[in-house]
Nucleic acid binder design. Structure first.
Length: 642
RNA sequence: GCCGACGUAGCUCAGCUGGUAGAGCACUUCACUCGUAAUGAAGGGGUCCCCGGUUCGAGUCCGGGCGUCGGCUCCA
């Protein structure tokens, strides 16, 4: 708040690095006016650091600011969509009288608005709502900002029966706000921190995209609201381009490519349980091979532990208390068993199978563990969220003083592995103590500090309360083709499992000590990793991963034997090759080979047969000419290794 | 699990207000034996997701279940 004349002036930084001096308490609007009258008129909002703010909010000393106008690209889209959300809400209230308002923020690629509705909404209502939006847009109704005290706003929204807005006003009050801003267009009024276009006419093409249920404040104990997703662009041309991009992204969907390329299959006989087809297994074996190379290099030993183990074991491990509802249980001969949802108890039993010395530590035990988890039906999603998957799991048992080095080595291993597959945008997260946790606060803090130290100066986000019940973790996330985030690798500290299983080792001083357990996975889940790999490459796998690396096409029947010989030479050299000798034209078979995304097509006719050669065609028509079969084999082997 | 939509041949889909199913691609066979992105013809293939109900009659209407898709919540 602007106050006495004793306040000093403030200074903010503009995008070009210049400093702008303003009186204390100056707002974004003041800043825009200070820069120029044109900008003052065009200004819609202001970006301060990562945040887009209302022009009416006072600026702080030293802040880096950027005025948002119609020409601000993504920032403009953000502001315009925020305004579009208000118009959507006005339209919905016109179509469905009595609709109560939840939240309605802009999000990546669009915006949504939550409603508590007197009647269910279906997509048949979309055209009417869109028509109403267009009508409101054509009115060019101004967005007007007013300010109310918390008490005034509470009463205002209570009178209107907008209970969720009342809840939010109260929440803001608890957060220490003394007044809130209200935006109005036509008769529509919304509690809103703002940043809006001047009038509804500045909203471009709006399209409703989907309908979903969403809990108030994201808590399933709260009422479920109806969420209407939509997007908006300045022009319908840009909207169409966006819809076209979405369509292209859908073509990379691993579920679609997995079926088209015959990699895997899902069957009603086992919802969430993937069936891997021969070509899918070829890729999986390559991925596993890459993991095993790392295991060898980093001093791991591979083990295998049983899929089904006594429920006694799961009681001891803590899974019974924390995870039972997600476990597949069975009973045989009057004894309870559970299908493993994790591999750690098995690894602990391996550790405990003999007496351990400090000289053996760190003991790194790896396992390709096939685990089963009964996930809720609504969360299943292709290979990304399944009910049975293979963890490239490992458990490192070490002394407390070895934690740092081990975690550092694991992070480096994961980095190297992802780089090999060409994953560049990997997000790191540090997940800390959750509500449902075992162990004391001091132990947790110690563990979290160890992980922070190992992360060093890497970029990562802290996810408060997102850790496993037994310890904090570092996780590695990547996005799929639709922008959803999925966790792959993980590195978790566990101070509790060794306790529960009473694990120990003999120290140099001939005493018994408790090892620390580190859980880690590189791919996290081979299945999920494959899904990401499919979407990342769009099915155009690098040569070394391609399920079929080369296909030989004999021009006519009389070239079949030579084609077979070429295939034999490729296979003998360790390449995955096949022959397409169907009675179809060469053009047709070339086309089919391209559509099957096969890296190399080898055409053989009279000329090639006579010279024991093959004509090499790379993906997308790259003609590399005719060369002796031996040369083709050497060339492809070299490229597959690169 | 919750909200919404959807479920017809291996795939993509058509099938109007109820009258017991159709196309393209794929597959099989035949003819053609072809030089770098679709040769032609013929043929096989369906418990219209499942279970009930309404009706003379249900792919179509109603109820329940299962599955899939988009979200929410969850995710060791």
């Amino acid at each position: 708040m602007p106050s006495s004349e004793t306040d000093r002036a403030i200074s903010v930084t503009l995008p070009d690095g210049a400093a702008l001096e303003l009186p204390a308490g100056a707002t974004g609007a003041d800043a825009a006016a200070a820069i120029g009258p044109g900008l003052a008129k065009a200004a819609l909002a202001i970006r301060v650091g990562d945040e887009i703010r209302d022009l009416a909010r006072p600026l702080g000393d030293g802040e880096a600011i950027q005025i948002v106008t119609r020409k601000s690209g993504d920032d403009y889209l953000w502001v315009m969509r925020h305004s579009a959300a208000h118009v959507l809400a006005e339209a919905v209230q016109a179509i469905v009288p009595g609709a109560k308002l939840g939240f309605g923020p802009p999000i990546a690629d669009g915006f949504y608005y939550d409603f508590d509705l007197p009647r269910p909404l279906t997509d048949e209502d979309f055209p009417a709502i869109e028509a109403e939006i267009r009508r409101i847009v054509s009115e060019k109704a101004p967005f007007e900002r007013t300010v109310m005290s918390i008490e005034e706003a509470r009463g205002f929204f209570a009178d209107r029966g907008d209970e969720y807005k009342v809840d939010q006003v109260e929440e803001l009050g608890r957060q220490g706000e003394v007044e809130v801003s209200i935006y109005r267009q036509n008769d529509f009024v919304d509690l809103c921190r703002g940043g809006h276009v001047h009038h509804t006419g500045e909203i471009g093409a709006v399209k409703l995209t989907s309908l979903a249920g969403a809990y108030w404040r994201g808590d399933e104990r709260n009422p479920q609201l109806t969420r209407l997703y939509a997007t908006a662009f300045p022009t319908s041309k840009e909207l169409d381009a966006h819809l076209e991009r979405l369509e292209q992204a859908r073509a990379r969907d691993h579920r679609r490519l997995g079926r088209d390329m015959e990699l895997f299959h899902f069957d009603d006989a086992g919802p969430g349980f993937p069936f891997f087809l021969p070509k899918g297994m070829r890729i999986i074996r390559e991925v596993e091979g890459a993991v095993r190379e790392e295991l060898e290099r980093m001093g791991y030993e591979e083990i295998a532990t049983p899929t089904i183990l006594s429920d006694e074991l799961w009681r001891k491990s803590g899974h019974w208390d924390h995870y039972r509802e997600n476990m597949y249980l069975t009973e045989v001969d009057g004894q309870g068993f559970a299908v493993k949802p994790m591999n750690c108890p098995g690894a602990c039993l391996v550790y405990r199978s003999t007496r351990r010395s400090y000289r053996e530590l760190p003991l790194r035990l790896a396992e390709f563990g096939h685990v089963h988890r009964h996930e809720l039906s609504g969360v299943l999603h292709g290979l990304f969220r399944v009910r049975a998957f293979t963890q490239d799991d490992a458990h490192v048992f070490c002394r407390p003083d070895q934690i740092q080095d081990e975690v550092v080595a694991i992070l480096e291993m994961i980095d190297r592995f992802y780089a090999r597959f060409g994953f560049d945008r990997v997000l790191l997260g540090l997940a800390t103590r959750p509500e449902k946790a075992t162990g004391d606060a001091a132990t947790w803090e110690h563990a979290e500090a160890a992980l922070r130290a190992a992360l060093g100066d890497r970029e990562y986000v802290v996810k408060e309360g997102d850790g496993a019940f037994y310890g904090p973790k570092i996780d590695f996330q990547v996005t799929d083709t639709m922008g959803r985030l999925w966790q792959l690798g993980t590195c978790q500290l566990d101070f509790f499992m060794p306790e529960r299983f009473d694990l120990s080792y003999q120290t140099a001083e001939d005493t018994q000590a408790r090892p620390v357990l580190i859980h880690r996975a590189i791919t996290g889940s081979i299945e999920r990793f494959l899904g990401i790999l499919i979407e990342d490459t769009g099915g155009d796998f690098p040569l070394w991963l391609a399920p079929v690396q080369a296909r030989v096409l004999p021009i006519a029947d009389r070239h079949a034997d030579h084609a077979e010989a070429v295939r034999g030479a490729l296979v003998a050299a360790g390449l995955r090759a096949e022959v397409d000798a169907r009675a179809e034209s060469v053009g047709k078979r070339i086309r089919d080979g391209e559509l099957a995304k096969i890296p190399y097509l080898l055409v053989v006719g009279d000329k090639e047969q006579a010279g024991d050669a093959a004509a090499l065609r790379g993906r997308h028509g790259a003609d590399e000419g005719t060369m002796p079969v031996g040369d083709v084999v050497d060339l492809l082997v070299a490229r597959a290794r690169a």
